[in-house]
């Protein structure tokens, strides 16, 4: 089932990300998702938007982040696109490897993968698609 796809375009500011998150999470709550699924979506959304703003657009005020979402009672589809150069997600070191455990950064992607049912990057690495089923 496909719902109405909504799009929010925000500046590369973390405060803007919070407003976009609120719009999406309102839909998730309206569709009656469980607390654990809500927690997962919120976490992944936070990480995805932070990555887009901080690493993708590098806080460039001329670059925007696009958040698209389609939330139905069955599933939430979320796409986050930045205007940065992109990156290779497979090249990011595993933060759970012994040698990386005490690194202060690099956990965002693995948390998205842990909490979402599907996480897919485009070839360029500036767009991530997230899928979470409501169950």
């Amino acid at each position: 089932m496909v719902g109405l796809v909504r799009k929010v375009v925000i500046a590369s500011k973390l405060a803007e990300a919070r407003k976009a998150e609120d719009a999406l999470l309102r839909e998730v709550r309206r569709c009656g998702y469980s607390d654990s699924v809500l927690f997962a979506i919120k976490l992944a959304l936070e990480e995805g938007l932070n990555n887009a703003i901080k690493h993708g657009n590098a806080y460039d005020p001329d670059k925007m982040v696009e958040l698209e979402f389609d939330v139905t009672p069955q599933q939430a589809r979320i796409t986050i696109t930045d205007q940065g150069e992109g990156f290779d997600p497979d090249a990011v070191p595993d933060p759970t490897a012994d040698e990386n455990l005490e690194r202060p950064c690099g956990r965002g992607i693995m948390l998205m993968r842990a909490y979402m049912d599907k996480v897919e990057y485009n070839r360029r690495g500036n767009r991530v698609r997230l899928l979470k089923h409501n169950r």
């Binding site: 936070e46 932070n50 202060p104 965002g108």
Partner: peptide, 8 residues
Amino acid sequence: HMSSSALG
């Protein structure tokens, strides 16, 4: 709620 930045 906590983010990976908070863990860092």
